[in-house]
Every structure is written in C-alpha cells, then in structure tokens.
Write a protein that binds this DNA or RNA. Structure first.
Length: 783
DNA sequence: GCTACTCGGGG
DNA sequence: GTGTACGAGTAGC
C-alpha cells in the first residue's frame, strides 16, 4: 500500500453500489489526483424524535453543548446523503443541512489546500487524473507545491449596445494565460505579428482547442473576470449549441452551471474562481468601480489595452486591420485576470484554510457565510451543536427587527483642508472579546455594571463560545502581525487579513437575519459599547481643542486647523492609554482636502458621502454615484470632474463655469447622443411587469417592431422633448437625431442631481447654473 | 411614502 | 445538492 502527500483542492461525492464515496481532487507531488474515500456515513443530530425509517442505519447517543446548555443528542446515521432531508423531518434535527462533503472534511479534520497523508491504492477508471482508493487520510504538515492557475477570457461577436446572446453571437477570440502559456485563439486570418496567436478554421475548432489547451495545462485553478456570469456559461452554451463535447472536468464532465440569484460555473476537480466576485466582496467598501480596468489600475497598477470595443463587431466583419489590436486586448485581459488571481491567491488560500471550505466556495462567500462556516468548524472543536438556519417566518421577523447602529458625528457640509483620519481598528471584535458578548452568556433582567446596557448583561464567570472564538482569532492575528512585521511575507499578511475578516464580520453576523447564531441582543450590546467608546474619544478631542469634522462608527476625521500632525498624534497616544484592553485608535492618514455634502433638502451633512484628496493626488470618493450605468455619461462625467476641481481648490467660478458649460452644451444640443443615452437591463419576461418604467416602454416598442426581447436584454434609450411621462418620451437611440434629446430632462434629472450637493458646498445655487439669463454672466467670466 | 425594479461585472 | 447575494438607488403609483 503506497503513501503520498496530498493537498485537496475540490471535493465531490458520488454514489457507488448504494454507498457514498467522497472524491477529493487535488495535488500530489506528481501532479493532479483524485482521492476516493469510502466508508464515511451520512448523519445528522437530533434533540428529540424517533422514527423507524428504513433509511436509518443506526443511532448513537452523545453529550453535546447547545447554546450554553449541556444536552443529550442522538446521532442519526442514514444510508445516503440524500436520505438526510427525507429523514430529518421526523426529528428535532440539528446540523441536518451540512453538505456531505463538507461534513466529511470537518469530521476527518481535512482542510483544503492543507497537506494530508494518503494511504491507498491506485484504481483504474477513465478520469483524466490518477485515482487513488484511499484506506486512510491523515492531516500532515508539508508545504504545498505552487498552484497552477489558468486565466481565460473570451471576446464575442456582438454589436455594441445590443444584448450579448450566446445563441446568436459566436466566440471570436479566446485568450489563455498561465505559467508558460500565452495563447489567443481565433478563427479568422488577419495580419498580425503576435507570436501567441493561433488561427483555427471555425468556432467549433476554437472551442475544441480551448478544451485541449486546458487539459494540457492541467490547472488547479481556472480563473476569469466575471466568468460565472459570462465567459464559462458562454463557452458552455456555444459548445452545447454545436454539440461539442467539452469535457472540462477531471472526471470528463462538462462545465456545469448552478442557477441561483447569480449563477456559478463549476468544473469537477478544478477550482473555478471568478476573481471578480472575490474582488468585489473584499473591496466592497473601498473600491468605487469593479470594472477590470479600474481594479487592475488599483491593485496591479496596470491597465487594459485601450481600444474602442464598439469597433470589434465591424473589425471582425470587415477585417479592416484592427483585429490585431483586439487580440492584444484579449490577451491583456487574460493576463490582468491571471495577475489578479495570483495576487489575491494568498488571501483565498487563507480564507480556505480558516473556514475549511474549498477555495471555489470560500472565494464566493459573503462575510456572514464565511463566519458561519468558520463557527461550524470551531463548534466541532468545542463540542457545540450548530443552531439551525431560521425558517421563513422567523427570517421575516428578524428582517423586521432594527436597532441602533454606530454613532455618527454629522459633518458640516463644506470643503476642508488637511484632514487627518483615524479609526478604531477592530472596534467591534475587541468589544465582543472585552465584554464577553456571546449568545450563551446573556443574563436577562440585570443591567451591566458599567451602566452601558439596560435590562441585560453578559456573564463574566464563563467564556462564551463565540467570544472565545473571536478572542482566539484576535490573539492569533496579533501574533501573526508581530511575525509579519519583520518578514514582509505575503502569506502571513494574507493570514492576518483572513483573521481580521472573520473577526470583523462576527458583529454583522449576530444581526444577520439568515444566521444560525443570530442574536439581536448581542448585536445591540456591541453597538452600544461601540457608541460609548467613540463618544468618549470625541468628547476628549473637544477638550483637547481639536476640531472633529466627522465620525462614523469607528472612524474620526479631524481638521488640522493649523495644528501640527504631531499634536494630533499626541492626542491619539493619550486616548490609547486610557482605552481598555486591546482597543485602540489608529492613524489612517492625512489628506490634502476633503469635501462633505448635505443630505438632500437639509443643511445637515450626509453620512457616508464624502471625497478626500490624498497627498498623491488620488481621490477617495465615497457614496457618490459616479459609476452607475443607468446614469447618463454626461451626468457621471460632470460629477467626477466637479469633485476633482473642488478638491483641488479651484475657484468656485471655475467649477460653476464648468458645470454651466455642460448645461449649456446640453441646452444648445451639442452633447453627442451617446452621452445622453441611458442603458437599463430588462430582467424578466416583459408581460410580467406590473408597472411600465421607461426602459420597459422602450422594450415593448422594440418587441412590437419584431426584435427579440427577453430577460437580460439591455435597452438603451434617450429621453426626448414633449409632454407627459418619461416613458412616453423615451426613444430608441436610432430614432433620435442629433440634438433631439430633452435637454431640460438631462439638466434637471441627471446632471443637476449629480452635482447639486457639490454646488451647495461651493456656495452656488442650482438656479445660478440653470437659469438662462445668468448664462451670459458666467460665460463672461472667461472674457 | 411605499413598492417595484435595476444596478454591478462581461462583449 | 444535507447549502446560494446584497445594499443602494430611481421612477411610478
């Protein structure tokens, strides 16, 4: 019997002769393998109930803990994983919805991407990889060989502005980028000096070649940018259309699409990571746009090839010499995707190891889900049973619950210079740990000794399950940060980041309606302590004569107002000395200028809506709507440019003149139609709409003209002059001639709302911008 | 005000 | 597959 080191990447199972066999796909020192493990029995826990169901094979009794109480629990074993949902109804069941492969990994203490020692024999079969029938799998400690990553990106033959339809539009290019692999496949000959170009005779050949190249490369990971929603389902759809057998999976299965709110593309045995989804999740709070170009600029300091994608359709039809550029564009996208995935892989690996989920799962999960899987894994160690997910009614009730959040010190709208930003790092985790806030430590009917909580408090005599978990996470993180200090190790950095992610998400998890360990009282207590601590810092800042501009939950913006940064840092040091335990205020940075705007219709400052200008000249924009697609280009452009001008302290007349100019160009019909076009997607069957918003009215008209409109079609329209509802004045771009757009609509409903709050800050009314007679005056400003 | 609907990313 | 997102903005009613 042979032994080998093995690092699982993906897990699946299949039923063989009435028994479930777990299949772990992953790396060995000799390449990819599939490790089959038989003999793990499906089971669930039960607090009450009995049944003589023949699917039950046996029942054991165990002592477990459940929400702070010791309980006797039945461990109910069944024949097949699919029996669990059928049998659990007869019991007061717990942990009866943990997927079988997941249960296997938790119980056997096998963590994906972590070394195991496998003892077993090679089995036959038709898989693309060697199959090992395992007799034993034990956790081990060896470093993983590098993961092989392959990035894929396709270009389709789609007329710009039209819906991208896999049933109509062929794939005309496909780029692959990996270690030692650079390839753009296409099926038209054109002049190009690109050594990575491979020309095939048809789209079918392109798809087949794609399959060959993937198989030859043997990726552990296939990545794409929005590949769940575009590239992989598209490739699958085209392959299906031509009845090409694209056996992408290591067991020769095709690409599978899981339909949900958002689709997920799966390939058996290969970890598919849609890096867009991961980027979006982890940078949700800090990035304004998630287009590949913006993300690549931000994270890689690289850009896409600058081409007019609108021209690809014609370039393909006419072979006008532009295709080479598009091939470069295609390659560059795959390269950027590869680099993003490579760069973020340490983070995905660490989240994988923490939660014990496969990287394809961990990379797609919301923070709440990551926390939950981490807690489920930890629960096993603590002999705790996981509570069930809420039923529909319970979930509804939870959704309706609201409570007081973080403290917000409202900004006074205006433009400020020299803004120092500080924040409480890990405010809520440190609060949870310090005050032992856990569902199993609540004492009802007793105020907390510090007077912060009324009607309940938290026991200090025993450590709560989740408080213990978070404390452990915080301490591990501190140790790793200490190690990372002198090492500049990317894995250590990623590990502390993953620990931080989990720690920071537990508060939100307590208040998340879908959570197993949901506890609104815990969530309320955490914010109460958070408010208590930050208010104290703010009042001390006032005592120290510092001008607090804005504060939201855990951050504080201070205007230097001539004070030196040293004085402010001195204050922070003083604050930190007085804060309990590991709580602390950190210096985030100094900004050249910052702008706060008012809430619509009031004079009070808007929360979570501001822009800062860094010392490097980069803007940090929060809460402004600069990137929404269903806003016309002219509105987006004007807002962003105005923000930039104001932050750079240009005189108000110049800003006003800039906006005024945009308004005038609209009025004098000099704005090109593509800048007033509004694009909106039709999301379902037209007849199922109860109301008729403008884009639906347009879609109905398009349908009447014989065009195919379905869920997913993007309609573009331009609002034209006339009376009545906007939907009656919306026209298709081709129906509108230059200058026929309704300037007043775009001024009042698009451009002005986008800049209105900014105008207030520089002391300019929207009338000054829109009134016609003022036009001359401002224009004359430039002589 | 409330409800219905769409946005994101991809070509 | 023993499991599936979300938070924010706008127009219409």
């Amino acid at each position: 019997m042979a032994k080998m080191m093995f690092w699982p990447v993906e897990a699946a199972y299949k039923v063989v002769e009435g028994r479930a066999v777990v299949e772990l796909y992953g790396k060995s020192r000799n390449g990819q393998v599939c490790v089959q493990a038989a003999g793990f029995e499906p089971y669930f826990w039960a607090l009450e109930g009995e049944s003589s169901d023949e699917r039950i094979t046996r029942i054991e009794e165990h002592t477990k803990k459940f929400l702070g109480k010791e309980v006797r629990a039945k461990k109910v074993f069944v024949k097949l994983p699919s029996d669990v949902p059928l049998v659990r109804e007869k019991f007061r069941a717990l942990e009866a919805d943990i997927p079988f492969t997941r249960r296997f990994l938790i119980d056997r203490k096998i963590t994906p991407l972590t070394c195991c020692e496998v003892e077993g024999e090679v089995a036959g079969g038709s898989y693309k990889v060697e199959v090992i029938r395992a007799a034993g799998i034990m956790p081990a400690e060896e470093e993983m060989p590098a993961l092989r990553i392959l990035a894929i990106d396709i270009e389709t033959h789609t007329k710009m502005g039209k819906e991208i339809l896999p049933e109509n539009d062929p794939i005309i290019m496909a780029a692959l980028y990996g270690e030692g692999l650079r390839k753009v496949l296409t099926w038209k000959h054109f002049d190009a000096k690109l050594d990575y170009l491979e020309v095939l005779n048809s789209e079918v050949e392109l798809i087949e070649r794609l399959g060959q190249l993937i198989e030859g490369y043997k990726p552990d990971i296939i990545t794409g940018y929005f590949s769940d929603g575009f590239d992989l389902p598209y490739i699958k759809a085209r392959a299906d259309k031509y009845k090409v057998q694209l056996k992408a999976g290591l067991d020769n299965s095709p690409i599978r699409m899981k339909k949900g709110q958002t689709p997920v593309a799966e390939i058996t045995g290969i970890s598919h990571i849609d890096i867009f989804k991961f980027v979006k999740r982890i940078f949700r709070a800090t990035m304004a746009s998630f287009r590949l170009n913006e993300v690549a600029k931000e994270l890689l300091n690289e850009e896409k090839v600058d081409v007019k994608l609108d021209n690809l359709f014609n370039a393909w039809n006419e072979q006008n010499g532009e295709l080479e550029k598009f091939a470069e564009y295609n390659m560059q996208d795959a390269k950027l995707t590869y680099k993003l995935c490579t760069k973020l892989m340490p983070n995905i690996i660490e989240l994988t190891k923490m939660t014990g989920l496969a990287p394809s799962d961990a990379s797609r999960m919301s923070f709440s889900q990551l926390v939950e899987w981490y807690l489920i894994k930890e629960a096993q160690e603590f002999n705790e049973l996981a509570p069930n997910k809420p039923e529909y009614r319970e979930e509804r009730a939870r959704r309706a619950e609201s409570y007081e959040g973080g403290y917000v010190h409202e900004p006074t709208p205006g433009l400020y210079r020299d803004v120092a930003v500080f924040d409480f790092r890990s405010l809520y985790p440190t609060v949870i740990s310090a005050h032992n806030i856990s569902p199993d430590t609540i004492i009802y009917g007793k105020d907390s000794e510090d007077g912060v909580l009324k009607g309940l408090s938290f026991s200090s005599s025993k450590k709560g399950f989740i408080a213990a978990v978070i404390e452990n996470v915080i301490q591990r993180r501190l140790r790793i940060k200490e190690l990372a200090k002198n090492s500049n190790d990317r894995m250590l950095e990623a590990r502390q980041q993953a620990l931080k992610t989990i720690a920071n998400s537990i508060y939100g998890y307590y208040g998340f309606f879908g959570a197993r360990w949901y506890n609104i009282d815990c969530a309320k207590a955490i914010t109460a302590y958070g408010r208590h601590h930050i208010k104290q810092v703010i009042s001390e800042a006032k005592e120290a004569n510092l001008s607090v501009l804005y504060s939201d939950t855990d951050s504080i913006f201070i205007a230097l107002n001539g004070k030196s940064i040293e004085e402010v840092l001195e204050f922070v040091k003083h604050v930190n000395e007085k804060l309990p335990g590991i709580m602390g205020l950190e210096y985030e940075g100094l900004y050249k200028s910052g702008i706060f705007v008012a809430t619509k219709g009031t004079e009070t400052g808007a929360k979570k809506k501001y822009a800062l200008l860094g010392g490097d000249g980069r803007m940090k924009i929060r809460g402004f709507e600069t990137v929404r697609r269903n806003l016309s280009q002219i509105a987006k452009e004007t807002q962003e440019k105005a923000l930039e001008m104001i932050l750079n302290s240009l005189p108000k007349e110049e800003v006003a003149a800039y906006i005024k100019n945009a308004v005038n160009l609209l009025r004098t019909k000099k704005i090109p139609l593509d800048k007033v076009m509004i694009r909106t997607q039709i999301s379902r069957e037209l007849r199922s709409y109860e109301n008729t918003p403008p884009h639906v009215a347009i879609a109905i008209r398009m349908q009447e003209r014989g065009e195919k409109i379905g869920a997913g079609t993007t309609v573009s329209y331009i609002v034209t002059e006339g009376k009545g509802a906007i939907r009656d004045r919306a026209r298709l771009p081709e129906e509108v001639k230059d200058g026929e757009y309704d300037a007043e609509y775009y001024i009042t409903n698009q451009v002005i709302p986008a800049v209105e709050r900014l105008l207030e800050v520089i002391g300019c009314t929207k009338e000054e911008i829109t009134e016609t007679y003022r036009q001359k005056k401002l224009e004359s400003y430039f002589g």
